[in-house]
Every structure is written in C-alpha cells, then in structure tokens.
Write a protein that binds this DNA or RNA. Sequence first.
DNA 1: TTGATTTTCTAATTCAGATTAGATTATTTG
DNA 2: CAAATAATCTAATCTGAATTAGAAAATCAA
Lengths: 214, 214
Amino acid sequence: MKQPSSARAATPEPQRKSDITRQAILDSAARAFRLSGYSGARLSDIAAGAGMQAGSLYYHFDSREALVEALMDRGVEQTEAAVRAAIAALPAPASARDRLRAAIETHLLMIVQQEDIASATIKLIWQVPQPIRERALGRQRAYGALWRKLLADARDAGEIRSDLDLSVVRMSIMGALNWAADWYKPGKMTPEAIAADIVAMTLEGLRGPCKGEG
Amino acid sequence: MKQPSSARAATPEPQRKSDITRQAILDSAARAFRLSGYSGARLSDIAAGAGMQAGSLYYHFDSREALVEALMDRGVEQTEAAVRAAIAALPAPASARDRLRAAIETHLLMIVQQEDIASATIKLIWQVPQPIRERALGRQRAYGALWRKLLADARDAGEIRSDLDLSVVRMSIMGALNWAADWYKPGKMTPEAIAADIVAMTLEGLRGPCKGEG
DNA sequence: TTGATTTTCTAATTCAGATTAGATTATTTG
DNA sequence: CAAATAATCTAATCTGAATTAGAAAATCAA
C-alpha cells in the first residue's frame, strides 16, 4: 500500500522492485481464480503461488476485492490491446472482413493460450461482488465498442447480411470465443486450428445464404 | 432429511407436501445463484425467497452443497428433456437440419426464458467445489452426446462442411447460446427473435461457402 | 380431541479465511 | 557502514455465514 511518493501516472518503464512482485501476485491470482473461481481461491493459495505469506499481500493490495479488480482491469486491457495490435499489424489493404478475422483469432488466442488472465477475467465477472462487477462490465462495454465498430464496418461492406441483429451477432461470437476458456485443453487441437474453424463458421455464417465467394 | 419410508424411485405424482417446499427452495436458489453466483448467494437469501428461515433448509437438504447439486441436476435434466421433446415434436419428415434448428431454439429458450435454473446451472459449473463440478460435468457430457449426434447426423446429411471439427462446432454453438444467459435482458428483443438470428448465422455458417440454398 | 409425525423456528455453535498490528528482515541510499 | 525505507513474516483478531440442537408449531391420522 505505501505507494512511493513519486508521481504515478504514465511512467511505465522505471519498474520499481515491488512491481515485479505485484505482477507475480496477479499471475498467481489469475491462475488461482481461473481454476477455483472467486470463492474457491484463497488468499493463501494466491500468496503461495507468488512465494509469500497471505498477510504480505496486503502490502500490495488493500483487500481481496482490490486484488481481483486489479486483475480484471488488466485482463480486459490486455485483451483489447492485443486485438487492436493484431488489427493494426494487418498488411496495408485490410478489408473489414480481414480485420474481423484478425480480431476473432486474437481474442481466442488470448483466451486459450498461456495467459490465465483473460479467461479468469471472463469467468470472474459473474462471481465478484456487485460493485466490482459494475465497473468491470463498464470496461468490457468499452471493449465491446471495438467489436461493434468491426461488425458495423463489415456489414457496411456487405460482409454481413442485413437481416441479422448486430448485437446478437456480436454476443454470439463473444460467446463462442469465451466459451473456449471452459473447454479448451491443450494437446488435442492447436489454438490456431480452433480459431480457424471458428473464423470459418462465423464469417461464412454471417454472410447471406449464397452470393458467390470472395 | 427424514425422507419418508416409502419407496422413492419413479413416483412423480403423489407429491408429498414437502415436495412443494422443496421445489420452492430450488426455484429461489436458482434465482439467487444466477444473480449472485455460488459465493454471493447466502442460504438466508435462498431461504427468504422460499419464505422460511435459513436453518429450515436443512430439513430438506443436507448442506449448501447438496442443495446446489440438486439444483444443477435438475437444470441439466430439464434442459435436455425440453430439447428432446422439441425434436420429438417436429412434424414427420424432419431433416437433420430441422432437428438441429429445433435444438438450438429450444436450448436458447431454456436459457433465456423465465427459468433461472438453466442459466444458473451453466454459471455454477465453474464456481462450485470440485467434486460437485466433476459430477455436473459428467451429466453435461451426457447432454453433449445428444448434440454430438445431432451434428454428426447433419454432417452426414451434407449440412455441415466436412473440414470443420465437430467438437469445435458444438462448443461454439453452446458458447453462443449459453452466453445469452449473461447478456439477455427481456424487453428489447424476444427470445424467439434472438433464437432466429443465432439459428440463421449458425446453420448457414456451418454450410460450405456456397452450394445453393435449401 | 389427542397423539404422532412433519415441518419450521430460534438461538447457539463452529469454522474458515480475510484482515490487522507489530516485529523482523531485506533493500536502498547517503 | 548506518539510517531510512520497503517488503515480508508471524501470530493474533474479526467476521460472517454455514451448520446444529432442541424447542415450537403445523399437519395428519385415528
């Protein structure tokens, strides 16, 4: 808690020593919460995973709730950043469809790959106390705006048949992707292969019944 | 607890007095767990919703865990029963596609309509203690077999392009449907309209890029 | 009505785990 | 090296909610 006296705002580089510990705690918390849920994960579990004692967590976070909120903050932030980066990295003439595809692939990879934090965040939203949930939903709404834009662009480009409600489309895609956090087990299929199938069934499903292929 | 001495097995009609209370408790529990999650819902909340005191619950259920397990039992059971009934009720020459459509519609309706129990069950799976989760997942696996069959039939009938992994397809559909429990708010769109959109995007997405329409 | 059985209530008890306080150790800085 | 600060540990304390026990009330059977 005793945050150092210097300015805090936008100083990402000078990593204080404790920032590393803080990160380790969040990593451990992500794993614990993903595996055990909000109620199942004990602070002592989380602390153990970060190589410390339960009481020591309070030097870094005011409370269990503050910890989980910080975790969810970072979870949404990281996912959105990754998706934006993937879209930005597309070669020059990227169609609405290309961008949507990139978003779907990247979101799924965030959910399914190493990172416990993205899937923990999703799972936690409906487990945490209401005030925390409210704020988390607010942040997710912001992330949702990105998807709304992607889908609106795709529809304007004629990639999505106009009789579908875009909210339903968006939520269905998010559902299909986020659900993977629950069933994915490494080994059988690669995340990339799964992403490819979801992209295929989603994108080609979004188009009208039949008009020739692009 | 003191279950009456008579046989228990397959006697659905002679409803003892306490069966009504038991049902009221499960209803209240479904609502409470859906709204507050496994940790958030207190036994006193559940009891209040059923018009009784927390301690009285123990006459009907051995423990909080027994209650939640009974709830999830019923949740899967009801959903599967509804889906099977909908399929059985289809007019005579029902194609694989028709049956899949019926399943999707019905599953969504179970999630989204009045019944808190279906959505509570889904939400609870990853919140409950491991032993309960294991058993619940087992029951869901059985329900999943029904879907596996539906999808295999559809693929055999040429309704699903053969390059897609059917497990991924199945899980994506379940994800899209189950996610609705989290975002659906009555008022804006009818459940039927939502179901129609999901059916449209799912089924037409499952077909190969283009071969004419059925 | 009366006794037996079922159901519910009230008022502890218990317990696990979050939180706190102060001592202790590490780390940095001059 | 020594003082100051940062980080962690240990050992309570606190809390809230599940659970239990036994007393009451309701229901039922005769």
